[in-house]
Amino acid sequence: MPKTRVQNSMSAIDLLLGGDPALYAIVRLSLIVSLAATALAAIVALPFGAMLGLTRFPGRAGVIVVLNACMGLPPVVVGLAIYLLLSRSGPLGFLGILFTPQAMILAQALLVFPIIAALTRQTVEDVWSEYRDELMALRVAPFRRVATLLWDARFSLITALLAGFGRAAAEVGTVIIVGGNIDGFTRVMTTAIALETSKGDLPLALGLGLVLIGLIIMINALAWGVRRFGEARAG
């Protein structure tokens, strides 16, 4: 019995190495959805977080607390909200994108946004305390300050992006609700794992899980390499 289990756990890795097209499609979709969601969130969250780090206004502390709290948004709740929004009976139903990868990207982007924004705010605020006098004395316009700080904090911000990506790649709650886990269309690693678990094929589910963890480690290693290389060059 234990022997066959081990063999079955290896079978997901065999499938991967053997180039099983269905598994590759799932891995590919997982990467595309989570990377696109991280990118989409980052485009808004980086400037938002930076601006929050730089400006002082009444109620700022409240915004920061809410933003930090939102790092722990329950994926199922986000999924449900996006589901109701995108449902044909919902306000954005006319888009017709429920149960598509686009919906999954949107939902994950929402999940990832607070993580990137909150970490960006923290990072940029730290850099700002170092740069403030210099940039003020150089009379740098506010928008350029934001851009400058984001650029100069770029290596630290990689960590924020990775945290966001990790959250997106690892979560199942939103994508299963808004994606529907449709075979060959919206099935990603995490929903495939949930499905195999419900079919009772625990070894295969575990094998898929190992593949997913491997992928996440690879992405992180890649980002780490980029960071080291960039830091070595930019000082």
Partner: peptide, 14 residues
């Protein structure tokens, strides 16, 4: 139109 050179100037990361 003024400029300041600080005792410990901050170099931008470039």
């Amino acid at each position: 139109r003024f400029a300041v050179v600080f005792q410990r100037p901050v170099m931008l990361r470039r």
